[in-house]
Amino acid sequence: MNIPYRPLALGLVALAFSAVVLQRAQAGGDDYFPPVVDPLVKEECGSCHIAFAPSMLPARSWQRMMGNLKDHFGDDASLDADTAARISSYLVTNAADTGGKRYSSKLLRGLAPNRAPLRITELPKWVSEHREVPAWEWKHKDVRTKANCVACHADAERGFYED
């Protein structure tokens, strides 16, 4: 493969593919998870993947994650202590069981209070919402990983997951 990123071709493939997935996702409710607005968090936590909404994980999960950025799912996402503390405080304040509570009561359903998962994609409710997504879709080259929310939820960065 000489030119891995041919935007046009990729766009067309993505379009064709999302048509398939969208049909299924559209059946969902009106879940809204306010996107990150803090520019520092957007910059530092939104370059490798979308800046995940703080209301998608409980405060204890964010604390655990921010405690080890050096090994962040195998990547080095480390930051200087001051920046990390500011980001941590934003995430914890707007977490699923603190400031973001009214958006996320459903998403935390089934999560034991003593568990602090690092992945949204491991929450019992997330898993059950996605149980009908077939294996080939996860492996599709425009998806590759469950963490690639935008591949199926085009408006994920604006906080909408119903489509």
């Binding site: 030119i3 891995p4 935007p7 939104g46 993947h49 590759r144």
Partner: peptide, 20 residues
């Protein structure tokens, strides 16, 4: 080039689907 693409003048993409 895995993320930045072969052509420096073109856009890239991380493995988690974020455009660069």
């Amino acid at each position: 080039t895995a993320c930045h693409g072969e052509n420096p003048r073109g856009a890239g993409r991380t493995l988690t689907g974020k455009d660069i």
